[in-house]
Amino acid sequence: MEQPTTTSTPHSHSGSPSIGEPMTLRNDTAIEMQNLSAWYSKNQVLHAIDLDIAAKQVCAFIGPSGCGKSTLLRWLNRMNDTIPGARATGKIALHGVSLLDSALDVVDLRRRVGMVFQKPNPFPKSIFDNVAFGPRLHRIYSRTDLEELVEQSLRASALWDEVKDRLTSSALGLSGGQQQRLCIARAIAVGPELLLMDEPCSALDPRSTASIEELIRELRATYTIVIVTHNMQQASRVSDSTAFFYEGKLVETGPTDVLFTTPKERRTEDYVTGRFG
């Protein structure tokens, strides 16, 4: 279902910062969470989270394994619906649209929120069909539009030059890093406002990791990006703001450079300096 009154398409946002522009936190908030708690069956995994995420910036969720950061990410596109026994209370809003509303059309939500997973998971189809998969689900395109969309999406994920001559061959023939960039292109092609990335580099070698990180920095001009990572260097390299979670609670959040250099909380300091986790 389309909700044109509440949905602002990505390109309609004005004043996107270009690359290299100094980082300033703007008032433009993409996601608001208030008093968000979540459970898997009887286990409470998130405790009363209050967090705002700014639009067109990269926000990193960090914290030791099991701290609830991936769970939180998966509530942002309601992927937790697929897990029996998962439930949440409180409020999450994406550009003012409440995400925990039971009447929400999750299919439409997921069209507006792209997701990239820990391990690259291209479909066993051709490169073209992988990218065209999402668009074809939701709309009917002319052949030329679809081809252009696939090309621009692949350019956006910096993969076009490597694959333009073999769009019809299987995506499974690509290297791990290429596959992950294909998955990013696949998410982009649907035209989302928000990109969720769940430890997108954890299965990749250092060179592929570097190329994905560079890509993330470029993509924030167009999308709001939330990235879960357990790699603190990565968080400091790619993100504008960082939220630190511990045992299901949000310990501290703020601009990345502040959080990493002068954390307010003792726990945050211990974690970012590598004393635990």
Binding site: R110, R111, G114, F117, N121, F123, G134, C183, R186
Partner: peptide
Amino acid sequence: SLRQAALALGSTQWQVVWHVTLPA
């Protein structure tokens, strides 16, 4: 992971089955 990928792109349950699970 394939089902997750399809769901995250906004597939309905049947679209996941028809385009992803069943062919695989």
